[in-house]
């Protein structure tokens, strides 16, 4: 799948933002006044910035409001709903903490849960697709949630919890990669099932249907740069998980150290998310005899 920068930015930044909102909603930490202001400013910049980035990959964004109509079937519509609900609940909660010096803790809990649910709906947009076997698995959702909650823990200064969550994420990431490498074959779709011609013999492409490229190949048969996948996996797991965990485990983790860990984590997360797309193979590639 084509690793569009807008989608990579969206899913990483908003994941981090909603993770941070969840921790703030659960009162970890309890903050008031200016401290609260800066925490919420960062959280909203990440979450809303990410959501705005996601509109750049729409072909026809003027109809975006209509995306609120199909929550009964569409994970994308559910994401639209939950993200707005989470931002509204957390926004009201934030006004109390910043300006009024009060905590409406029920609102905070609801907002926090909605924030986590938003990340889950984002993950389901990918995990629901049978056409992309690598994504079509619960580990996709588990990883989106873990990275989000761990990122929130990191940004709120819960060093030890963040370190533990990042190490768990690293372990599940390794499992997801190795299981994901085999899943396309396990699901059994081949050029023979795609064409129905397997009963006659071994099928290969004789001639492509068009000499140039097309939307399908650009969007879903992205093969450029996969040769660097192994190196990038190492980068991703070290920068997103291991290095921040090590930094946070240092005694007397101050603000500077937390900031450094957050930046390193985010760079690693970009690599992880780039791989998430670039390594994902869509079954339509079978019709073109490539994956």
């Amino acid at each position: 799948m084509h690793p569009a920068p807008s989608v990579i930015l969206f899913s990483t930044l908003s994941g981090l933002g909603f993770g941070l909102l969840a921790w703030l909603g659960f009162g970890q930490p309890v903050v008031f006044g200016w401290t609260a202001f800066w925490f919420y400013a960062l959280a909203y910049a990440l979450a809303v910035g990410g959501l705005l980035a996601s509109t750049f990959h729409l072909g026809n964004p003027k109809n975006a409001l209509k995306a609120y109509t199909q929550w009964k079937t569409s994970w994308l519509s559910r994401e639209a709903w939950l993200s707005v609900l989470a931002l509204v609940f957390m926004g009201i909660f934030a006004i109390g903490e910043i300006f009024l010096g009060t905590r409406w803790s029920v609102l905070g809990w609801i907002g926090g849960l909605l924030s986590i649910a938003t990340v889950f709906t984002t993950s389901m947009i990918y995990a629901q697709l049978k056409t992309v076997p690598r994504w079509n698995h619960p580990t996709t959702s588990v990883l989106f949630l873990l990275y989000s909650i761990a990122g929130g823990a990191l940004l709120t200064g819960h060093g030890l919890i963040a370190a533990i969550l990042l190490l768990i994420a690293a372990a599940i990431q390794l499992l997801a990669w190795s299981a994901g490498d085999k899943r396309f074959a396990e699901r059994g779709s081949t050029i023979e099932t795609a064409t129905g011609l397997g009963f006659m013999g071994k099928v290969r492409q004789f001639e492509p249907p068009h000499t140039g490229t097309n939307y399908l190949l650009d969007e879903m048969v992205y093969v450029v740069g996969r040769k660097h996948a192994k190196t990038l996996r190492l980068f991703a797991i070290v920068l997103a998980c291991l290095a921040p965990a090590a930094l946070l485990a240092l005694p007397s983790a101050g603000l500077a150290l937390i900031g450094l860990a957050a930046v390193v984590h985010l760079i690693g997360l970009f690599a992880q998310r780039w791989l998430f797309f670039a390594e994902a193979e869509h079954v339509v590639g079978l019709y073109y005899d490539k994956r």
Partner: peptide, 25 residues
Amino acid sequence: DCIGCGLCAWACPYGARELDQLAGV
């Protein structure tokens, strides 16, 4: 009503849907 998000094309195994690059739908 189409926002041109492309998710339907991702969901189709057969490559039956193409997002028009000029119209964005």
